[in-house]
């Protein structure tokens, strides 16, 4: 039964992949694929951040640090010429996970406000390391000289279609994993901590250990997002690790909604499409963005997907009230 549920997610993901894989067959507009890659990178970044913000109740303002760590470590490994792409990919995940675990061990002991501050402080530390360790990272010019993309298993990531399919595939695997995490006992334990940390502790939950685990997982997934971006721009730049990147992540969550699993992804899509369209037609990106924020804050008062999902739920609930008075909820099974 449990394996079946997991299989069901995988089948859905596979179907989505088939649809996404059809896009390059019906159009030769590479820029649509580029937008797809951007969505994969930023969407994974936002979804992973929401594991902390929405699920664990930890407002991290340093998530961009792990995105940058993923991009730089992958880029540097590939530039040595000693690793295949899958090997560098795997090593980077291990490295970023270890790095986030280390940061988490320091941060999770602090209360909410200080937690947010110290994550920001770590991000600034990473950023400054990137800037000052010029011999390794290229400093403020970024990782130069391009990232070599040797062919593996017949996949040539220099080819934009291959890169697009590669990113979509891994992205979907990550989404399934993240969804499984939120639906597992572990995910519910994170929600317990979010809802009521003290009570979770009194129910025998080792709260800090779970926070560290959540932070580590989120960091690792953000690192994968960073790798997508490194592959896309064929480089890595300090701006990936600047606080504005973390801000963008939080922004995507706010736009799309933090209570619905796919909310942050919707937020990432909104932000990216908005950015694409505004740069084509105007230089006033900030102005357009400001207006959109106003609409969301004053109009919807929550993220778009939350607004839709919760709206449907409320409507259903009120309909139920009108039609029948259920004595026993439907899902109740008599014993």
């Amino acid at each position: 039964m449990q394996i079946n549920t997991f299989t069901r997610y995988s089948v859905v993901a596979l179907l989505v992949f088939v649809v996404l894989a059809a896009i390059p067959r019906i159009t030769d507009d590479i820029s649509i694929l580029d937008t797809g890659i951007m969505i994969c990178a930023n969407g994974l970044f936002a979804l992973s951040l929401n594991l902390l913000v929405g699920r664990t109740g930890l407002l991290s303002f340093g998530h961009g640090g792990f995105y940058a760590a993923g991009a730089y470590s992958f880029g540097l490994l590939m530039q040595t010429g000693m690793f295949s792409i899958p090997a560098a990919f795997a090593l980077t995940i291990v490295f970023v996970a270890a790095l986030s675990a280390l940061v988490a061990l320091v941060c999770v002991r602090l209360n909410e406000t200080y937690f947010t501050f110290i994550t920001l402080a770590f991000q600034m530390l990473f950023y400054n390391i990137i800037l000052s360790w010029t011999s390794l990272t290229g400093g403020d010019q970024g990782l130069l000289g391009g990232i070599p993309k040797p062919v593996f298993l017949g996949i040539d990531l220099v080819n934009p279609v291959h890169l697009y399919l590669f990113c979509c595939g891994i992205f979907l695997v990550c989404v399934v994993l993240l969804y499984q995490i939120t639906q597992s006992p572990f995910g519910y334990t994170l929600r317990m901590i979010r809802d009521n940390t003290e009570r979770a502790r009194f129910l025998g939950v080792a709260v800090n250990r779970y926070k560290v685990a959540s932070f580590t997982l989120a960091g690792a997934f953000a690192g994968i997002g960073g790798m997508f971006m490194a592959l896309f721009v064929s480089g890595a730049y300090p701006s990936f690790g600047y606080w504005t990147m973390s801000g963008d992540g939080i922004f995507m969550i706010m736009l799309g909604g933090m209570n619905t699993f796919l909310g942050p992804l919707v937020g990432a899509i909104i932000l990216i499409v908005l950015n694409d369209l505004t740069t084509i037609y105007t230089d006033h990106y900030g102005l357009v963005l400001g207006c959109v924020i106003l609409v969301f804050v004053l109009g919807l008062r929550r993220g778009l997907l939350d607004f839709i999902v919760e709206g449907i739920r409320d409507r259903r609930a009120s309909k139920m009230d009108q039609t029948i008075q259920p004595t026993v909820p439907k899902e109740e099974i008599p014993r």
Binding site: I30, S31, D34, M38, M229, V233, F240
Partner: peptide, 10 residues
């Protein structure tokens, strides 16, 4: 830089 890369690819 990431925006510059995207714009120029576009």
């Amino acid at each position: 830089p990431d925006e510059a890369a995207r714009i120029n690819r576009d």
